[in-house]
């Protein structure tokens, strides 16, 4: 589902985000991306979501070579890759419902189907009663769950999360991880960047450790 062939990313500032990464995630696999800040976790995720383009090597996602994707195809690519951020990136002048519906509105889905899917998403993250409130009134954990519902609502085959539990206490973090495990069970491919090794060690999933822009350790998943 996701493949990196000797990928390097050098920023305009001269900083090398990634230098020669090889990585392969099969469809339906779930993996964690660990490493110090600046090790290249975010850069790797950005290359998959085409927030950045690789300066060397090739990135394949869902059967497409991202190097060859034209700029005008990027929106359609992003519809197949759900992204979750540490800072949630919600629209604070819109309700929870409208936030979650955004990917469907953008894709031109009809009203009835949108409503149905958003409700299902809200149900999945346990926020069914909050659909009419504004994100600002929610706790950090609830806001993150809105972000997760938004990433999921268009049923993308790939889900990326960048430090999704970065601002949450351990209890809430475990709940979020539990959600991710559920998604993986229904076949979604997940790649989650986190520095919270204690949280993920016992999950028995693959852990890819980055150091200085390279894969330092890849403890293959048990499944």
């Amino acid at each position: 589902m996701i493949r990196f062939d000797n990928v390097a990313k050098r920023y305009a500032t001269g900083h090398e985000g990634l230098s020669g990464v090889d990585l392969h995630l099969a469809a339906g696999e779930m993996a964690f991306l660990t490493g110090h800040s600046g090790a290249g976790k975010s850069t790797l995720l950005k290359l998959i979501g085409l927030l950045e383009r690789a300066t060397r090597g090739q990135v394949w996602v869902n059967g497409r070579n991202l190097n060859k994707l034209r700029s005008r195809d990027i929106p359609y690519h992003r519809r197949e890759v759900g992204m979750i951020f540490q800072d949630h990136r919600l629209l604070h002048d819109r309700t929870v419902f409208d936030n979650i519906a955004l990917p469907l509105v953008v894709a031109g889905m009809g009203h009835a189907e949108t409503r149905r899917r958003v409700r299902a998403g809200l149900d999945k993250v346990g926020l069914l009663k909050k659909e009419k409130v504004f994100p600002i009134t929610l706790s950090g954990g609830e806001q993150q769950r809105v972000g997760i519902a938004r990433a999921l609502v268009s049923k993308p085959p790939v889900l990326l999360a960048d430090e999704p539990t970065g601002n949450l206490d351990p209890e809430l973090s475990r709940e979020i991880m539990e959600l991710f495990l559920q998604f993986n069970q229904v076949g979604v491919t997940l790649l989650i960047a986190t520095h919270d090794v204690g949280l993920i060690n016992h999950l028995g999933k693959r852990i890819v450790n980055l150091r200085d822009g390279r894969v330092a350790d890849d403890s293959g998943g048990l499944d």
């Binding site: 005008r72 519809r79 992204m83 990136r89 955004l102 990917p103 953008v106 894709a107 938004r150």
Partner: peptide, 16 residues
């Protein structure tokens, strides 16, 4: 600004 960024993140086309 931030709204436009988010719409681009979830796959909004330039036309949209």
């Amino acid at each position: 600004h931030s709204e436009i960024e988010i719409v681009k993140l979830v796959g909004g086309t330039d036309a949209f």
